[in-house]
């Protein structure tokens, strides 16, 4: 007997599985999968200004820094400003989907591709953002590779304010509506990577970025 049959067989025996209770269990399962009942959620004011304010506040709690600009055209200059202020290189890897922005005029050298170990700055967008916890939702695809937000020491993320949703549940609904099925990797990111494994002392920059900077576009 295969291990699969052995394991499932013992579970079935313990549950006194028979045709009748199996049919009932399947019915309950299908109901659960189609109803997708949501649990209790902390109240989040869904007015656009309030969503933005909460997202910003919670992001800062998670040690991200935040800049707000009016239009997408202002993003390259905002990124350049941050890199100069932080004395960081003006060369970056970005999601291929972001190469339409005019990085050169802002004095930046930006390559749209997957990330490599040597990349020091990674620029990404996000699928949406969650106000409840100050969290970015990134979905992998050819235009949005996962490692760009992971390998570089600095991660800069562009967040469009209308894409800030109250809760993670809203993010799932948006993904179902716009993507149909889940991409290979959905990464929820809340601030720079960190560890507390030596004497429970929090240190930023464990294996992923040391710093996460958010450029929020209001339009």
């Amino acid at each position: 007997m295969s291990s699969r049959e052995d394991i499932l067989g013992r579970v079935r025996a313990r549950l006194n599985r028979g045709a009748t209770n199996a049919a009932l269990a399947r019915e309950q399962m299908l109901a659960a999968l189609s109803q997708r009942t949501q649990g209790p959620k902390p109240a989040v004011d869904a007015a656009p200004e309030a969503l933005l304010a909460r997202f910003r506040e919670k992001s800062e709690v998670m040690a991200s820094t935040v800049d707000i600009v009016a239009t997408e055209a202002e993003v390259p200059a905002a990124v350049a400003r941050y890199l100069v202020a932080m004395k960081l290189p003006k060369t970056a890897v970005a999601w291929p989907s972001l190469t339409t922005l005019d990085w050169a005029t802002a004095g930046l050298t930006v390559e749209g591709r997957g990330a490599r170990d040597a990349d020091l700055v990674g620029i990404t967008g996000c699928f949406c953002a969650v106000a409840e916890t100050g969290t970015l939702m990134l979905c992998s695809s050819p235009g949005t590779p996962a490692a760009v937000s992971l390998l570089p020491e600095t991660h800069i993320a562009i967040v469009r304010a209308p894409r800030i949703v109250p809760h993670m549940e809203d993010a799932w609904n948006l993904a179902r509506k716009e993507l149909g099925s889940l991409p290979r990797a959905v990464n929820f990111i809340s601030g720079p990577s960190r560890t507390g494994d030596i004497e429970q002392t929090i240190v930023l920059g464990a294996h992923g970025p040391y710093r996460v900077h958010l450029v929020i576009v209001k339009e």
Binding site: K58, V61, M62, T133, T135, S181, L182, P183, R184, A185, V186, N187, F188, I189, S190, G191, P192, S193, R194, G208
Partner: peptide, 10 residues
């Protein structure tokens, strides 16, 4: 409130 990374891999 949330871990820094939370990944759903499919």
């Amino acid at each position: 409130s949330i871990s820094n990374y939370f990944s759903i891999l499919t």
